[in-house]
Design a protein around this nucleic acid. Structure first.
Lengths: 225, 225
DNA sequence: GAACACTTTATAAATTCTTTATATAAGCTG
DNA sequence: CAGCTTATATAAAGAATTTATAAAGTGTTC
């Protein structure tokens, strides 16, 4: 198994150092950020396998940063905090944190919780792959394979197939799809959708004239199978 | 959302009682086991949505039970223990526990951790079905199945069967149906309705000449059964 | 400026809805 | 119950709408 990257967002230099030494000596690659802004940027530019986040940051509160991260970051986030207040734990977990450790923490426990969180991530039952017939969609890697072969999709094409895949079997109205992919204000641009559905079908259907995956529901929208 | 079952495996009666009261008052269905053997059997016979497991059980150690459970049980397991020893936490997490709480625990934190663990499990939620004999109507997915097989309906046909399904057993007048499906101003277009009822019957009735689902109430309207 | 992705236009094809025609069934009246 | 009237069922033609696809235009990136 290749080494995994962990991003640490903490403003206390001695904690950062301690974490870095502990984690690196256990085979992880460590990247460090000391402010919310810096942490968010590093996470966005090069998403790590998991994030250790301190709740008591100087610029933006850790709770706020957690919310922002969770808008797109799906891998584990473990919260670190000197606060042992119950409310903080609850709030962080409800906002999508995977786990919580109060400082000072025991390094053994820290490592165990990191292993546990990463294992879940890689466990087969948490597989981010959505399969539909000969198609496999990896929502994390943003890739689409057909019979194991990688298909080249544009950003919009991928967004569209991912939306379909997340709503398998459900009829999605034109308006809903347009709102989700292009945003509010595009709900009447049905032709955009027709063009992209045709392009997708050309790529994923064995017989684009008789589509099996993207079925049109005339007058309503489309359904993915 | 339907209530979720949580299996508690703990030998201390007062803890079992406390957990039961706390969880039931928060909308969960609680099932209790006081020994490893009993817990394993209950989990196997009717797998719960998650398991709360005490490490200090009398017959087999909680660690051993955790291992046995993890051979097949993939849903969340949260460990409870009076032992605050670091080694126990590490061992349990490494053996596949999802989370860990030391007694005495705060109920707010317990509930937050339960919600956090269950959230992932419940991501793809199943839709409520309206069933009528061999028909299943999924109002969310906008689909109609007959004996599990998807039927192809036009938008108006689907709107009509959905209206019927939402008013099962009730006689709907021509005027009411026309108003609901075509809108005000179409209340006198009874012929539209006849055409579409005939089309629907052709698709959903095993003998369209003697309809069982869409029954005509002569002079009044139709009734769906 | 070449490559690429998205937007827009044009047109053919497919599907669905409306209307007409006709057959069948049910109900009423003398 | 025959004969008349009204209500319903269904097929099929015609009209309207919706969809598919190619291709041209526009803008962006390297």
């Amino acid at each position: 198994m290749t080494a995994q990257e962990i991003l640490i967002i903490d403003d206390e230099p001695q904690i950062r150092k301690l974490l870095q030494i502990t984690l690196e000596s256990n085979g992880y690659i460590v990247r460090l950020a000391s402010t919310s802004k810096e942490g968010l940027l590093m996470a966005a530019n090069h998403p790590p396998a998991m994030i250790l986040l301190d709740l008591g940051l100087p610029d933006v509160s850790g709770h706020e940063l957690l919310k922002q991260l969770r808008e797109w970051y799906t891998r584990p986030i473990i919260i670190l905090s000197v606060l042992s207040h119950e409310e903080d734990i609850i709030r962080a977990l409800d906002n999508g944190a995977n786990d919580y450790l109060t400082k000072p923490f025991r390094t053994g426990e820290l490592l165990a919780r990191i292993r546990s969180s990463l294992r879940k991530e890689n466990a087969p039952e948490n597989n981010p792959l959505i399969e539909a017939g000969d198609l496999q969609i990896d929502l994390v890697a943003r890739t689409l394979k057909r019979n194991g072969e990688l298909l080249k999709l544009t950003a919009t094409e991928y967004n569209l197939i991912a939306l379909f895949a997340r709503n398998e079997g459900k009829v999605l109205t034109h308006q809903f799809i347009l709102k989700e992919i292009w945003g509010v204000g595009f709900q009447s641009e049905t032709q955009y959708l027709r063009v992209f559905v045709a392009q997708l079908r050309k790529k994923i259907e064995s017989d684009p004239n008789h589509p099996k995956h993207i079925v049109t529901e005339s007058g309503v929208g489309y359904r993915f199978c």
